[in-house]
Simulated assay, not measured.
Amino acid sequence: MKFPSADALPQTPLLVINRAALERNITQMQALCDAAGVRLRAHGKTHKCSTLGRLIVERGAVGLCAQTVGEAEAFVAGGITDVLVTAPPPAWAGPRLAALAKTGATIGVTADDEGQIDRLSDAAVAAGTTLGLVVDLDLGTHRTGAYPHEALTLARAADAAPGLRFAGIQAYLGHLQHMDDGDLRRSADEAAFATLKALVAELTAAGLAPPVVTGGGTGTHAFDLASGVFTELQAGSYAVMDVEYDDCGPPGGGAWPFEPALYVAASVVSTRHKSHVVVDAGFKAMSMDGPPARVISGAAPGSLWRPMGDEHGMIAHPSMIDVLKAGGRDPLGFAGAVTAADADPARAFPTDAPKVGDIVWLQPGHCDPTINLYDALHVWDGERLERWAVDGRRVTSL
């Protein structure tokens, strides 16, 4: 990617998307889904951006997934007309989801117990509308979802509830998406497929054939599309990718069919030390629930980014990484190592270290929570930046 010049950036830290890479990723995933005969319902929690969501739908996706009520509201307001809320909603959410369905949008919602089904039914009836009810299944993530043996009872409850229509079953295998062991990822996914196929047969025999079997993700997409059981894929991170997915590798091995498209631009603000320079991107600019962000451009090859507080991060020069490691994680040890290196006349300041005012480009470790830190995506087409609001961060107040 030819990155924008410093003069083209309105400020830093700035979240930037390479539009060409984004478009290629969207096109590639849609082609894979089309070839497999599986609908793509891309997960909007990755980007929380209705403009990006519309682009994905325009390229062939049936709609979007939303993880929260606020995301669903933003997507519908932004022109997305088919949204599935993939987490069982809080007790207060029923009236707001029913209100979305009143706009004419097709709104699906997941549930994993009968109380949730009753509340959603009451809200839909009160609003004079219908919600699609998808039974959420737990096949190992143990976050939400009913065990498979409970699915028939819940499907019957959804089918009988006024204001609801039984819309299918969901099985998101989040615990498999980033498994480093590719063979184990495959075998665990295939075990889940066997369970799902048996469950579909059970529901079908009971007269409740699920209209949709939805789930899957970027880290298992190839297995999911080949499974013969999923009718809908919920992948999301493929659109922009991140270090975590790069590290774990694609399902089936080889090279990813998707490429990095998401970056954070950071400005160098201080160069007082031989071991590292300081940029204006720290904890508040980069989610740290995954691997550290990767230095892509603007610094010597092999440089490392590490946070140095809320607003700052270091770019450690590769020739000095041994010095920093020797200092250890103890703050006093780190400070002593840096001070000693600065005072050592045998060590010169690296001539290829960034200078104050330079831009260093970073690839986020985990895309979803990093995007959630920003108000907008700045989409670079090679000539100009276009601002796309991350409008799904909004939670509408009652």
Results as ranks from 00 to 15, higher is better:
Val57Phe: 05
Thr144Asn: 13
Pro90Ser: 12
Gly132Leu: 08
Ala21Asp: 09
Gly63Cys: 05
Asp246Leu: 14
His273Ala: 08
Gly249Asn: 02
Trp380Ile: 11
Arg41Leu: 14
Val390Lys: 12
Gly302Val: 04
Leu55Arg: 14
Ile371Glu: 00
Gly79Trp: 03
Asn25Glu: 02
Ala261Trp: 08
Tyr374Met: 02
Ala198Asn: 13
Ala188Gln: 15
Val395Pro: 06
Val76Phe: 08
Pro90Gln: 09
Ser270Val: 11
His378Gly: 10
Ala31Pro: 00
Gln363Lys: 13
Arg39Ile: 13
Thr51Arg: 13
Pro211Tyr: 11
Thr106Ala: 08
Ala205Phe: 02
Asp368Gln: 14
Glu71Thr: 04
Cys248Lys: 05
Lys48Arg: 14
Pro250Tyr: 07
Lys102His: 12
Asp391Gly: 03
Arg39Val: 15
Tyr263Ser: 03
Asp330Arg: 11
Ile371Arg: 01
Arg384His: 13
Gly70Leu: 01
Phe230Pro: 06
Thr153Asp: 12
Phe223Leu: 13
Leu152Trp: 08
Pro88Met: 12
Ala93Asn: 03
Ala167Thr: 07
Val38Phe: 05
Asp358Ser: 05
Asp289Val: 15
Val57Lys: 02
Gly79Tyr: 01
Pro307Cys: 05
Phe223Gly: 07
Ala348Ile: 12
Val268Gln: 01
Gly79Ile: 07
Gly392Met: 01
Gly327Glu: 02
Glu71Arg: 03
Leu164Ser: 03
Leu131Glu: 09
Ala255Trp: 10
Asp122Asn: 11
Thr68Glu: 00
Asp7Asn: 06
